[in-house]
């Protein structure tokens, strides 16, 4: 074969890939191991790379000492609702942007893309004032609305790419058969695009689940806090309790990792399509 690689090249390649794998997975492994150690043995020399006995004390301690169950519940509700709303709103906008030409289209796309260049927290102060006026400070509803707005631009761009892979004749046929544009979109196009839409939803969910600065700024009371806002409180304390901290970190990483593993193929497709095509 023309493209056959030399043996030395292969050895170098797989050694390199192996090192990358170890380095990538190690931090996750370490936080997992820490979280399952007995709280006393976390701060003991020599460091144990494999716990002598598995203990759930850090996890039970976390839920006893803080309202972590409430934080996780808040994060779940806020992220689910915001991701779902953002996906539906973006779906409608992406459909129009994918299928039709109009003069202000470039302006709309530009306005969406600019939001990706400017960090969301740049207007944190004036957003806080706006939310105060709307009586939406320290409210999960308020946070959901802001998250929807933050998620829409990138989600729209991703979904637009997925729409372009579906022939327009599909919904045209449905409309000839008497469907309205709206029902053609939801009865014919959406079922065809399910993987792409699911990936966009998961992408939104993960971003909302991970968001830090907006939640820290807009939420005050423990009953409303999301996980990142709560963790920010944990690390601000003078003496960090690394036992419950590691348990908290593990619990907030796991959901996103599972979701991402399920959808990563489509997310990568959606995100790279634009960059590679042009």
């Amino acid at each position: 074969m023309i493209l056959d690689q030399s043996l030395a090249g292969k050895v170098a390649k797989f050694t390199g890939l192996g090192i990358c794998l170890v380095l990538t997975v190690f931090p996750l492994y370490w936080i997992l191991v820490t979280s399952f150690k007995d709280p006393g043995s976390i701060f003991a020399y020599p460091l144990k790379y494999w716990p002598s006995e598995f203990s759930l004390a850090n996890y039970t301690g976390l839920f006893e000492q803080s309202n972590f169950g409430v934080f996780i519940g808040n994060s779940l509700i806020v992220s689910l609702v915001a991701a779902a709303l953002a996906t539906v709103v973006s779906l409608l906008a992406a459909y129009v942007l994918a299928r039709f030409e109009f003069v202000s289209k470039g302006a709309v796309m530009g306005a969406f893309l600019v939001t990706q260049m400017i960090p969301g927290f740049i207007a944190l102060g004036s957003l806080y004032i706006l939310m105060t006026r709307l009586y939406l400070v320290d409210s999960r509803v308020g946070l959901v609305l802001v998250y929807v707005a933050v998620s829409i631009p990138l989600c729209t761009v991703m979904l637009r790419g997925f729409f372009e892979n579906v022939p327009a004749s599909l919904e045209e046929a449905a409309m000839v058969d008497g469907c309205s544009r709206f029902s053609a979109l939801f009865r014919v196009l959406v079922p065809v695009m399910t993987p792409g839409i699911a990936a966009s939803f998961i992408f939104n969910f993960v971003n909302c689940w991970n968001e830090l600065f907006l939640s820290v700024t807009l939420l005050n009371s423990d009953s409303n806090k999301t996980v990142p806002a709560a963790l920010n409180g944990f690390i601000s304390s003078y003496n960090i309790d690394w036992g419950s901290m590691s348990a908290a970190a593990v619990l907030s990483i796991i959901p996103t990792m599972i979701l991402f593993a399920v959808a990563s193929r489509y997310i990568v497709q959606g995100l790279t399509a634009g960059a590679v095509k042009e």
């Binding site: 990538t24 996750l28 830090l212 963790l231 690390i235 996103t256 990792m257």
Partner: peptide
Amino acid sequence: FPWAVSGFLIGILFRW
């Protein structure tokens, strides 16, 4: 997988 994790949590992992 790091892609799925927020920079904030990565920071906490490395802080430890």
